[in-house]
């Protein structure tokens, strides 16, 4: 559906995109990840021709279409015409895209879809951020675009608004839309994306499905994680020895003897086994956390960010 090869863009002397490559398959959701300023919005603006690319090729197409590829775009902070109500705004968008179908039917359908029926006669100016975002989504999908670009649609939304927008994106996915979702909220991407791309310094540093990426980073056969178990009381050397005899050769003990680290390969099964072994010895864990194979870990690793920072 979309292929980008060697895309470059500089603002003055500052190179924002530095040979970006990416590909998006038809009917999939592509999660575009990266820290602020890595070039996500610039990439989106170039795809929908708001700003000019410097170098590179962008190919857009579907199997049955050569011309008139429709692209819908929702900017990060969509600025809508506040003096209009949702019905008027969508009617205006219908005219912009020369919509051939029944405009009133489509307007009502979209307003229902984004759950704004209760506010269809209210001016957009008085809308909350979440309502504006949903209104923006309705406008950007009005003409059933072949490719939909959503630039951080959930940023600055409260949990309720975020959940609503994400369920809307899920709905669009179920309807077979091709979507590029730019965000730095990893859980959003994990929830809906078929494929992700992690950008750093204007380049794509990792691309693939979440599973593929984890395998790519940690190896396919034995993707390893580190399980950290913080204990309420210090553990005895005998108990550590017993755990090693049980097969946990890799177990390491911290200096204060209050934290154990295990290298695990099967997250769910190993955690269950270890917690059982500890319970048998009346060792009470205070906190358990897994490090090493989550998208979050990979994200921090590949965007050169310190997780604790």
């Amino acid at each position: 559906m979309l292929e980008i090869i060697g895309l470059e863009k500089a603002y003055g002397g500052l190179k924002v995109l530095n040979g970006l490559n990416m590909s998006v398959e038809k009917g999939s959701i592509y999660g575009l990840l990266g820290r602020n300023g890595c070039g996500k919005t610039t990439t989106m603006n170039i795809i929908c021709s708001i700003i000019k690319k410097d170098v590179g090729t962008i190919k857009i197409g579907t199997d049955n279409k050569v011309n008139d590829i429709k692209i819908g775009y929702l900017p990060e902070s969509p600025s809508l015409y506040g003096y209009m109500n949702p019905v008027e705004y969508l009617q205006f968008i219908a005219a912009c895209c020369n919509y051939k179908g029944d405009i009133d039917k489509r307007v009502n359908e979209l307003i229902d879809m984004v759950n704004l029926s209760f506010a269809k006669r209210r001016r957009i100016r008085g809308f909350s951020r979440g309502m504006t975002q949903k209104m923006g989504i309705a406008a950007s999908i009005f003409n059933e675009p072949d490719l939909l670009l959503l630039d951080e649609p959930t940023s600055a939304l409260d949990p309720q608004g975020r959940a609503e927008v994400m369920s809307l994106i899920q709905k669009l996915k179920d309807m077979g839309n091709t979507i590029i979702l730019s965000t730095h909220i990893l859980s959003d991407v994990e929830r809906v994306a078929d494929k992700i791309g992690i950008m750093n310094n204007g380049k794509m540093v990792l691309e693939g499905s979440i599973k593929d990426i984890i395998n790519q980073v940690y190896g396919e056969s034995d993707a390893q994680s580190i399980l950290h178990v913080r204990l309420l009381k210090p553990i005895s050397d005998e108990d550590v020895l017993a755990l090693k005899e049980e097969g946990y050769d890799s177990v390491k003990l911290s200096v204060n003897k209050k934290e154990l680290s295990f290298t695990i390969t099967d997250k769910e099964a190993d955690i269950e086994k270890i917690t059982k072994s500890l319970a048998l010895r009346a060792i009470i864990p205070q906190n358990i956390n897994v490090e090493g194979t989550s998208l979050e870990d990979i994200y921090f690793k590949y965007t050169n960010q310190n997780r604790k920072a």
């Binding site: 038809k26 795809i47 021709s49 000019k52 190919k59 857009i60 197409g61 199997d63």
Partner: peptide, 12 residues
């Protein structure tokens, strides 16, 4: 200022 950065190409 109208830009067209992309090429329309059937599914590749």
């Amino acid at each position: 200022r109208e830009i067209r950065n992309y090429e329309d190409i059937p599914e590749f």
